[in-house]
Simulated assay, not measured.
Amino acid sequence: MPVKDDTKDRERTAERLLTASTKNWFDPLTEIDWEAPLLPDAFFIDEERCTLYGTPMWDRLGPQQRIDLSRHEVACTASVGIWVEVILMQLLVRHVYDQDMTSRHVQYAFTEIADECRHSTMFGSMITKFECPNYGPGRHAHALGRFLKTVASGVQPFAAALIAEEILDAMQREMMRNETLQPLVRDVARIHVIEEARHVRYAREEVARRMPNLNRAQRAMCRLLIARVAHVTARNLIHPGVYAAVGLDPRAAAREAWTNPHRSRALQDWGRRLVGFYEENGLMGGPGLALWRRSGLVAPDYRPGKSTNGG
């Protein structure tokens, strides 16, 4: 298959994103009132999106324990967000290393890296404000992230980056619109959603440009890689330590959370747009489907729809 030269299209995309970046960017250290006290009775995420909502274990929790669990779950997700952004920054640096540093495509990559630095600082400040630990993704996932950031190349970094970007984006769009939540949570979500929209556009267009140029073996490898990333990311959004923080048995609570239909519905809602994009670009299928089903981001009986880029 001949490789299509999309340089001009890529440069136009980068030019638009650079222009948007000059108009809508935020310094979270000054944009957010970090000194404002947290509201004593407000949840940090919609209680129906808490991983234990609707379970017998949830029913046994008192009102303050439920709010505290929401606080720890949001902090944990933010710590995983930092982990993902650190990986993405390294992937972007590797991506531009052999390219024309004066191109708009590369200059937007540098702009996105700067955005991700601010986002990581913002998430870290929020975790500190919540008085929660830096849960992170867990030791095994941390090691797999090291592998990904070292070996991923071509379309793989952009396809893989979309997983966490789109899941967090869908989650935070809900959070920023929910006026009953902590104002700090809504402020952080708003900033991240506005700036992350550009990052998603950058990655999506790169995936759409590159996928038609892959041969069958490269497609299969990319499908399997992103399936593994989806599985690891979704399974590590919430560390069992969040349950211990509110007085629960962490192993028992984690088991109950993963069999909770409310939790499954949340993950599938947050992953729906991402999965649709992957289907359109031939990235769902093959042996990796078992990983997708175990991730919770699709239904247990999921079958990909007809793709525009099958093979």
Rank of each mutant, 00 (worst) to 15 (best):
E196D: 03
E196H: 11
E196G: 06
A197W: 00
A197Y: 04
A197P: 10
A197H: 05
A197L: 09
R198F: 09
R198N: 03
H199I: 08
H199F: 12
H199L: 07
V200H: 04
V200C: 13
R201N: 14
R201K: 10
R201T: 15
Y202L: 12
Y202V: 13
Y202T: 12
Y202H: 12
A203N: 14
A203V: 11
A203L: 07
E205Y: 07
E205C: 11
E205P: 13
E205A: 12
E206S: 15
E206Q: 15
E206A: 15
E206H: 14
V207N: 00
V207Q: 01
V207R: 01
A208L: 09
A208W: 05
A208D: 12
R209G: 12
R209Q: 02
R210T: 07
R210C: 09
R210N: 15
R210G: 09
M211Y: 07
M211L: 08
M211F: 06
P212G: 04
P212L: 05
N213H: 13
N213P: 12
N213M: 15
L214G: 05
L214C: 06
N215C: 12
N215R: 10
A217D: 15
A217E: 10
A217L: 13
A217H: 13
Q218D: 10
R219T: 01
M221V: 15
M221P: 09
M221N: 14
C222K: 07
C222M: 10
C222E: 10
C222G: 07
C222Q: 08
R223V: 02
R223N: 00
R223H: 01
L224S: 14
L224D: 13
L224M: 15
L225Y: 01
I226R: 01
I226C: 04
I226Q: 02
I226K: 03
I226T: 08
A227G: 09
A227E: 00
A227N: 01
R228Y: 11
R228G: 13
R228A: 10
V229F: 04
V229I: 13
V229K: 01
V229D: 00
A230P: 11
A230R: 03
A230C: 15
A230W: 07
A230L: 14
A230I: 06
H231W: 12
V232W: 02
V232F: 05
V232N: 01
T233C: 08
T233S: 11
T233I: 13
T233R: 06
T233W: 02
T233Q: 08
A234T: 13
A234C: 14
A234Q: 06
A234Y: 07
A234W: 08
R235H: 12
R235I: 08
N236K: 09
N236V: 12
N236R: 08
L237V: 12
L237Q: 02
I238M: 09
H239K: 05
H239E: 06
H239L: 11
P240Q: 05
P240K: 02
P240C: 06
P240I: 03
G241R: 11
V242F: 02
V242H: 10
Y243E: 03
Y243D: 05
Y243C: 10
Y243L: 02
Y243I: 14
A244I: 04
A245M: 08
A245W: 06
A245G: 05
A245N: 11
A245S: 04
A245Y: 01
G247C: 05
G247E: 06
G247R: 06
G247M: 02
L248E: 05
L248P: 00
L248S: 00
L248R: 07
